[in-house]
Simulated scan of single mutants.
Amino acid sequence: MSAGPDHGTVGVSDGKPGPAVSFAGHVLQVFKRVKVENLVAGLSGGVVSTLVLHPLDLVKIRFAVSDGLELRPKYNGILHCMKSVWHQEGLRGLYQGVTPNVWGAGASWGLYFFFYNAIKAYVKEGRHTELSATEHLVSAAEAGVLTLTITNPIWVTKTRLVLQYSSDSTSKQYKGMLDALFKIYRTEGVSGLYKGYVPGLFGTSHGALQFMAYEQLKRDYSKYKKIPSDTKLNALEYITMAALSKLFAVATTYPYQVVRARLQDQHNRYDGVVDVIRRTWRNEGAPGFYKGIIPNLIRVTPACCITFVVYENVSRFLLGPS
């Protein structure tokens, strides 16, 4: 975990804590600082943004896995993809996979803010200075790893449901989120539910970079305005900082999402992350790693803005002003 203040951890006979005792002590101290209000606020933001923008997530994933297989529908662009799905399956088709997406996004944002604020509080305890950009980065990365470990099975089911192309519900492999979870576990075991976990770990850098940029922008803006760093800003200010931080994170980390989606895809089989990278590079070149980035940017920028605005307002309502 990140370096923090000495909390008097009981150690071995020489007075120094052993590694296991020290780590357990750090974890315990972090969890003493968790606030359910952060979980509720983050969950609220994640659910609202997901319900509004799920169709663009569906488009992004379908483009991300478009590797030339005959069974995949061919799309000429974002609008063509959405119109094709609408004509075949209506609104229900555009919201295919929305249940695990809502669960996943709600849990991910909720747990992320939950862990992130607890880790920040632990690191900052006893200090009168703001955290540095590096400390925000490390705190966000640690929160991301914990969150991914809990939520990865939900993301696998979302990808599988989104990539069911048939309009005939009787021929679909999965009937819903729980059916997908049980079938994946029954046929592929725990490893099936954790497909894409390794590139997902690389993806924690996405959230870490985003949170680092967001916190830094808030701090710099407060200094520019000569106001306390915990002053409530207006919705437009939160939206601007959330959008800029998200664009920065997406631009630097997007390829991991393509690798992850392809590993979780039920229509193709890869032998791991390296195999995905090798085959994508050989068959599609560098552009292959950026398939779906346009619908992703169109989706995640407003999604992030909605999430952060809802989070900031719900957390302030629940916790009160700092």
Rank of each mutant, 00 (worst) to 15 (best):
E70F: 06
V40Y: 13
F63Y: 12
A213E: 05
Q216A: 12
N152K: 07
G207Y: 15
V258C: 00
K175Y: 01
R269V: 12
Y311I: 03
S167G: 08
L91Y: 03
M241N: 03
V47G: 06
V162Q: 02
M241Y: 11
G292L: 11
V259E: 02
V156H: 04
S66P: 03
P100T: 00
T129W: 00
N268C: 08
S229E: 13
P19R: 05
L297I: 15
L148Y: 06
G285M: 09
H128S: 13
V145S: 01
E130T: 13
N268K: 15
Y165P: 06
L91D: 03
N296Q: 14
P199S: 00
K16A: 07
T9Y: 13
S315T: 06
V65F: 00
G189T: 09
A41Y: 02
G320P: 08
T301W: 07
V250F: 10
V47W: 10
Y95C: 02
N76A: 06
L161T: 01
D271L: 15
R160K: 11
S84L: 05
A235L: 07
F63K: 00
G288W: 08
Y165G: 04
F289N: 00
T240P: 00
Y311K: 03
Y270H: 08
K120R: 12
R282H: 10
A133G: 00
I306A: 02
I78N: 03
A251V: 05
S229M: 10
D275S: 13
A64G: 01
K226T: 14
R282M: 03
L131S: 06
S139K: 03
P153V: 08
N313D: 11
R269M: 10
G18W: 01
V27E: 02
D6K: 04
I306Y: 01
A208I: 04
P287I: 01
F63V: 06
G144C: 12
Y256N: 02
G144A: 10
A180L: 04
S108P: 05
C305Y: 04
V258P: 01
K172L: 13
D179C: 00
L318A: 02
R279K: 14
Y224W: 09
V40W: 11
K35D: 12
T129R: 10
P17F: 04
R299L: 09
P287N: 09
N268G: 05
S169E: 12
Y254H: 06
S322G: 12
S167I: 03
G18L: 01
T231K: 15
G68K: 05
L201A: 00
F182D: 10
T240D: 04
R62D: 01
V65R: 11
R186K: 09
V123G: 13
G25Q: 12
V98L: 04
I239V: 14
L217Y: 15
I119N: 04
A118D: 07
C304D: 14
L71C: 10
Q164S: 13
G8Y: 00
R269A: 13
F113W: 09
Y185K: 15
T134Y: 08
P73M: 03
I150P: 08
D265V: 04
W281P: 09
Q164N: 11
K83D: 07
N283E: 14
I239D: 07
Y197I: 11
D57M: 02
N296I: 03
A261Q: 08
A24D: 06
A180Y: 03
F202E: 06
V258G: 02
Q266I: 09
L71E: 15
S245Y: 06
G18I: 00
